[in-house]
Write a protein that binds this DNA or RNA. Structure first.
Length: 214
DNA sequence: CGGCTGATCGTG
DNA sequence: ACGATCAGCCGA
């Protein structure tokens, strides 16, 4: 039942002021925090290892660029701490958390987590295998690729569009808690992925990840 | 290991 | 039409 690799269950959750800051600050600060979601297999907890910042209406890579406030982008305009989950390429979900405050659509794309405890690892593997589908004969899901990448992360944590526009400060089933501390010197920055259309904004170093222990 | 490609659908 | 992607396949 109790395995190794178990982090304390009692981490406090992140409250509104944490999210009420700009997207870059929230991106960096989210590294090491724990994303928690209740799934049909039980609660899954993942330590956030990789994020990207989307900086609102002036950011050419943002869905809200130029002030596009539509049904889809609406959650980004809500209070910091609101989830923004959307479908990409017709088959995957990307999970973001709104930053700043009502009306200012900063957001943080969660790009990677690692399981925070053995139960979470087990459940993530089940969710991945379930998704692999009826014909899925590829049975091995490597730990490295269990939940790295926005699409895989959503599968491994059971996050779907049903989890869109949730206030993660208030929800009992979808939220973020404190986690491991990450030293600033262990944070790497790079270019955001898959936004080639965003011109000069494609070169901004607004992707953050924890340097892996080599 | 790195590069290419098909899958698949809501949104603008 | 097209994309904030992934898995599988290919060749090296």
């Amino acid at each position: 039942m109790t395995g190794k690799n178990v982090l304390p269950q009692a981490f406090p959750r992140l409250e509104r002021p944490f999210f009420a800051r700009d997207g870059i600050t929230v991106s960096r600060e989210l590294l090491g925090k724990i994303l928690v979601h209740d799934t049909p297999f039980g609660t899954v907890r993942g330590i956030i290892t990789e994020t990207e910042s989307y900086m609102g209406e002036t950011d050419k890579a943002s869905h809200a660029y130029g002030g596009r406030r539509t049904v889809r982008t609406e959650p980004m305009y809500h209070d910091g701490g609101t989830s923004y989950v959307y479908l990409i390429y017709g088959m995957y979900c990307c999970m973001n958390i709104a930053a700043m405050t009502e009306g200012i659509p900063h957001a943080v794309l969660i790009r990677g987590v690692v399981p925070a405890d053995d139960k979470s690892e087990e459940r993530m593997t089940l969710l991945r295998k379930e998704r692999a589908g009826s014909g899925g004969r590829k049975t091995s899901v490597s730990l490295k690729h269990l939940a790295d990448g926005p699409g895989r992360l959503c599968i491994a944590m059971g996050i779907t569009r049903a989890d869109n526009d949730v206030d993660m400060v208030e929800s009992e089933s979808f939220y973020v808690t404190e986690g491991i501390s990450v030293r600033p010197e262990d944070i790497c920055a790079g270019k955001r992925i898959g936004i080639d259309y965003a011109q000069e904004a494609a070169d901004y170093l607004w992707r953050f990840y924890i340097k892996l222990p080599q």
